[in-house]
Amino acid sequence: MSSIPASPKRALLSAIPIAVILFFLPLLVAPYQVTLLAYGLIFAIAALGFNLLLGYTGLLSFGHSAYFGLGAYAVAFIVKYLEITSMEVFLLGGVLASAAVAALFGFLCVRYTRIFFGILTLALSQVLWSLAFKFYWVTGGTDGLRVPTPSLMGVRNPAGEDKMIFLAHRYYYYVLVIFLVGASVMWVIVHSPFGKALQAIRDNETRAEFVGVQVWRYRWVAFLVSGIYTGLAGTLWVPLNGLTTPDILHWTFSGKIVFFTVLGGFQTFTGPIIGGVVYNYLETYAVGHTVYWQMVLGVVLVLLVLVLPAGIAGTANRLILKLRREA
């Protein structure tokens, strides 16, 4: 992918300072900024998963809102029907739900590529959206379902503690740890023989087939992993947001996932992470400053496609390589 060679040592060397910064940040900035970053990291997890399909396997899904939403609604149902508020149970439920549906949808979708793959994923995700929208006595319809503050590793939030403090401290670290583990696992996946096989499929399906790669099975597993990551992100997102509505199942949310992955740069490993975090700031800033925030995002996207198709990380990589060559 990236032309900078990837060795585990070098990856660790560049990841550790960033992890340290992320770790100490809550001590330095206001709680609100920390929760914003938590949102960004969650989007980054979703984008990492999404990019396993787009960047590494060459499949553009326009239906990843389905898994994000499943993660979130699984949590809401656990609260509503089982009356459990343990974050670990949430994670288990969210991952299982998104994995089950990703396995099924993936099985149907990976037989197609290109535009047909995109439309099929979109149509299937819209089935879920319309169910969440119409079965209001189960899902709360457009009002959505509320999710209370969860207990983390069995520890309840002390009564009376400000929710903002909880989200900006304990919950932020919870998200950060899962993000770091998730990103590391994804790094291992894309640099494993499995990841290499996916890239071979992306670059030349026929050749990959002839080398002995069972194309559809690899794509299916990639789809499954991708769905689980995005589902995990949805699960982490909902306690932070406090509410889940059908909006996150709608196909325009899938468009946003595509957006932030491309914003960061889908041809690099770090791109989706950067994209998730930057997109979140961009959207928050735009929503806070103008009612025409969609237009701001749209203009950014159009400019991105026309001027910076490699995204933030891709463009940065290119600049670094160019500087090195000149030095």
Partner: peptide, 27 residues
């Protein structure tokens, strides 16, 4: 400008256009 590029970009630019037009109507 996009005909020679991958179809991902064509989809994305029309998605960007969707966002712009949605707010242009509001504007």
């Amino acid at each position: 400008p996009l005909y020679k590029r991958a179809e991902e970009y064509q989809l994305l630019i029309t998605f960007g256009l969707l966002l712009i037009l949605e707010d242009l109507l509001r504007f």
